[in-house]
């Protein structure tokens, strides 16, 4: 097959943003189309180069075709939608039932979430996986946040000679964990963004809300304090916020068009974040509401920015057409 056709199919592939299995199936089908079309044109006396150019011309614009394929596949089934909303609903339940502090149930829920995430990750990264990844990253942020006093104490001791230097082993463990957690979070985010940045936004949407709550809990004492009144005063609003995010994730999965998906996520995410901030910090004023909404929007656009840096698709995709030649041999050979 001529390089023009390969390059054209590559253009379509670079705009697909679907799961690798579906992309491979699509590329296989298009590859056979071009094989047959070019071979037929050649039989009518046209040379291969002209036949390829004619085949590309009659196929349409690569970006438009990729968008149509995306819209044909982007609407998840109701099972996908429920699976996407489920982690939000599970954590919302923990808050609604005041059980997030339960020393068995809460870790069990997060172990279940991480297990399902790993299962989905190794089983071809289905569309419902991305909201689960977001919650799987939260325990890493939680551990990082509550152990922040260790590097804080070290810096304070080394630079100002205040306090006590923590044990070297504890310090190494904490710093090592920070590096490992940062690596996991960055690697995961890049892998998700390489598939589709909009799924990165879906993955990241609950983290600022959980982060605000964690900050407030820590400001009121500690996540481990036993004062129930302080500990559970934001449970209602958190349950409401995560329930709203669950619904927004379900809506997200059921929509077809990318722009509409992002708008739905941005509207639900910004409103929820602002409501949570308002309830946690009291009357924050109109200007703060606008600022928080804008910050949330910018936050949800970080994956788009990241995608422009890291690109789209797996590295192996550069050789996808060689794979096609093996699996879909030419009729002319």
């Amino acid at each position: 097959m001529l390089t023009e056709v390969i390059s054209y199919l590559h253009q379509i592939k670079s705009h697909l943003r679907l799961d690798p299995t579906t992309e491979k199936q699509i590329m296989g089908e298009l590859y056979t189309h071009f094989q047959e079309k070019v071979a037929e044109q050649q039989r009518s006396g046209i040379n291969e180069k002209e036949a390829s150019q004619e085949a590309i011309k009659s196929f349409g614009q690569a970006k438009t075709i990729a968008r149509l394929f995306y819209e044909a596949h982007s609407k998840g089934s109701w099972i996908d939608a429920i699976m996407t909303g489920l982690p939000h609903l599970m954590v919302a339940f923990l808050f609604a039932s005041h059980l997030w502090h339960h020393y068995i149930l809460a870790p069990l829920v997060f172990i279940l979430i991480v297990s399902i995430t790993l299962f989905g990750w190794w089983r071809g990264k289905p569309g419902w996986l991305y909201s689960w990844i977001g919650y799987s990253l939260f325990p890493l942020l939680l551990v990082g946040y509550i152990s922040r006093s260790i590097p804080g104490q070290t810096i304070s001791f080394l630079f100002w000679g205040e306090g006590v230097l923590p044990s070297l082993w504890v310090l190494l463990l904490v710093v090592g964990s920070y590096i490992l957690f940062a690596w996991i979070i960055v690697r995961t985010t890049i892998r998700v963004v390489k598939r589709d940045w909009i799924l990165g936004s879906l993955m990241l949407v609950p983290l600022p809300i959980l982060g605000c709550w964690l900050y407030n809990i820590e400001q009121s004492g500690s996540i481990f304090i036993t004062n129930g009144m302080v500990m559970h005063q934001w449970d209602g609003i958190m349950a409401f916020a995560l329930l709203t995010l669950g619904i927004s994730s379900i809506v997200f999965i059921r929509l077809r068009q990318r722009i509409v998906k992002f708008i739905a996520l941005a509207i639900f995410g910004s409103i929820t974040f602002t409501i949570v901030a308002y309830n946690l910090w009291g009357d924050i004023g109109f200007f703060s509401v606008i600022t928080l909404t804008a910050l949330m929007l910018l936050y949800l656009l970080i994956p788009a920015l990241l995608e422009s840096r890291v690109g789209h698709g797996e590295k192996v995709s550069d050789n996808w057409w060689q794979d096609m030649q093996i699996n879909y041999p030419s009729t002319t050979t």
Binding site: H33, G60, F69, E71
Partner: peptide, 15 residues
Amino acid sequence: CKEGTIYPALRKLEN
């Protein structure tokens, strides 16, 4: 029609 539009339509019917 643009030939490329047929394949997404076929995928949509299948989905």
